[in-house]
Design a protein around this nucleic acid. Structure first.
Lengths: 337, 337
DNA sequence: CTGTTAGCGCGTTCAT
DNA sequence: ATGAACGCGCTAACAG
């Protein structure tokens, strides 16, 4: 015995033999809704239990032409909102007897490449929370019958299932909250890297402000990070700190950086001098030094919507493409009056 | 045409036919280090390219008795340190041509159940960053030849591969930093939920302090969260705020909550009245209001160590179990003097 | 170096 | 309701 030898997992054949039935019987016993006698089923289950048998998902997937793996394509996983999102999606998927296979993709090209890799696994579907994949990829997935759900992504030319937070409503809520706080000079912080969700929030924010007869404009800021928020403070103060200013930063992480810089580097009092409102409601937004007023996106609801949408398409691949809109809500804290 | 029909992925057979070779040739062309003529390989690749062929990982895994899926068992994924950890692990895995399949497990029981589920996928291995699985499970994995790597987990009775940050060294660094700041009254915060890593840090912290002739004791605190840190402040102030107190909170997330409560609810000045030092160096630790002195655990190094250890065991399953220790370092910021 | 053959473990007709 | 036979797509062992 020179090489270590490992014990093999029991197969349906082993179970069949021990139960004194055929392999088909075993298969049926583990297939919900298959026609099998109750006592045969019991015999099988008993034998399976004794042997510690589990159906091999790989073989099952190969045979079915469809595994119960679901691709999870994520960018910025180390970011509070995204990690909460992935956590929620994972829980939701396993609750539905699927397993997430994780991919990180930082750009649209990577997302496309990644989506290609998925196809190797006969996935049941994929959820994309990184950049929106190019239309060609969406088409390819559709052609191969791989359901795709985009979370908080742009409406593609290609019709594809999407679930989005109610960005326009969020933008409007932000404007209204700021106006109600007495702000008469509104500004929306726009990160350097464009993003569908952020843009949608900002656009409606501006629209709502102007509809109320309030001046509102956009400030071109840095990257979508805490540091990006910090760095934007200087420019913002220089350009835009008229009295009764209200700032909308459509992403909490950035808003927190901005808030820190405003207070400590520029002696701006929030909410006394200016008001600030964020978006997402990440855990840190409620921490003591911040108490940031923000628009909450419920990650659990988003995840549930995404998964149920995926299931719906798996059941009925031919149905029309849908968009599911998840409500958002204003969370009042201490950066507005 | 009543039902939608989807296009099938090309198989090795299709490629073989188009290239005018056998299926084995195709397989060999995609198997690094297989013996195949250069021009046959080229013909295959060309045909494969034209058809958009990809090897089916499911079939490959079934045939090899081993997929290139790696299980990632995680708890508290929505926490800053854990999400960074998972991010790093994912990148490291895909760089090594493996794909992570994600599981969230919140307790030891769940971890065990989860580990069982993995076995359905002929995994190449698994990385566990949630609670340490019971020995029986480790044994079972070993029996089935599924490599297991535990990250920051206790030394099990069962010998199993582990990678850990240098917890004792971290604890010592913390004690030294506090003493160097003039603290003569040390206290370690111990969360309610026991954990191997935290315990190891605390133990060495206490040891180092006492070796230096400094009094040091443990404060029994709340859960391992920001809120847990906040809630612990009151008790800590009541019991332990002698002059020149130095606090070691072996987990940043909790330390930040503690710091906030200390400052705003109890008017304790940090670092003037007391010093505080955390552990992990999560991104938030460097944010403006905190500037927390802490012990950095490099998530990237941990991930690299874990993956390379996994690879080593895959190559040589019979080798002796190892423990890889990843260095930590002190990051001096503004909560120590 | 190449083609042929035989599994990998399971789902699913197709008879009975 | 049950068993036999075939196919899912691929790799590995065997001849040539």
């Amino acid at each position: 015995m020179t090489k270590a030898e490992f014990q093999r997992q029991p197969t349906s054949f082993d179970v069949a033999r021990k139960a004194g039935v055929s392999r088909s019987a075993v298969s049926r016993a583990f297939t919900p809704g298959a026609s099998i006698a109750a006592d045969t089923r019991d015999k099988v289950m008993q034998a399976a239990d004794a042997l510690g048998y589990r159906v091999n998902e790989l073989a099952k997937g190969l045979s079915n032409q469809r595994s119960n793996l679901v691709g999870l394509i994520v960018a910025d996983l180390d970011t509070p909102f995204r990690s909460a999102q992935v956590d929620a999606l994972t829980r939701e998927l396993v609750a539905t007897h699927y397993h997430p296979i994780l991919f990180t993709a930082d750009g649209p090209v990577q997302t496309a490449r990644t989506l290609h890799q998925l196809l190797h696994y006969n996935l049941s579907g994929a959820v994309v929370t990184s950049d929106a994949p190019p239309s060609e990829i969406c088409i390819e997935c559709a052609r191969l019958g791989v359901p795709l759900v985009l979370v908080n992504k742009q409406q593609e030319l290609t019709a594809v299932d999407r679930v989005v937070g109610d960005n326009p409503h969020g933008g409007r809520l932000a404007a209204e909250a700021l106006i109600a706080s007495g702000c008469r000079n509104l500004v929306a912080v726009r990160p350097s890297r464009q993003s569908y969700s952020l843009e949608a929030r900002i656009e409606e924010f501006l629209g709502a402000a102007r509809a109320a007869g309030i001046t509102a404009r956009v400030f071109a800021a840095g990257p979508q990070t805490y540091e990006g928020g910090r760095q934007s403070a200087a420019g913002l103060v220089a350009q835009a700190m008229a009295p009764s200013t209200g700032i909308f930063c459509p992403m909490d992480l950035m808003a927190l950086g901005l808030l820190d810089a405003l207070r400590s580097d520029h002696a701006v009092r929030v909410p006394d001098d200016v008001c600030l409102i964020g978006y997402d409601d990440i855990p840190q937004a409620s921490w003591q030094p911040y108490r940031l007023t923000t628009i909450r996106q419920p990650t659990t609801l988003l995840a549930q919507a995404a998964v149920s949408m995926l299931m719906a398409r798996i059941e009925n691949p031919a149905a029309g493409r849908r968009t599911s809109i998840v409500p958002v809500e204003l969370v009042r804290r201490s950066t507005t009056r």
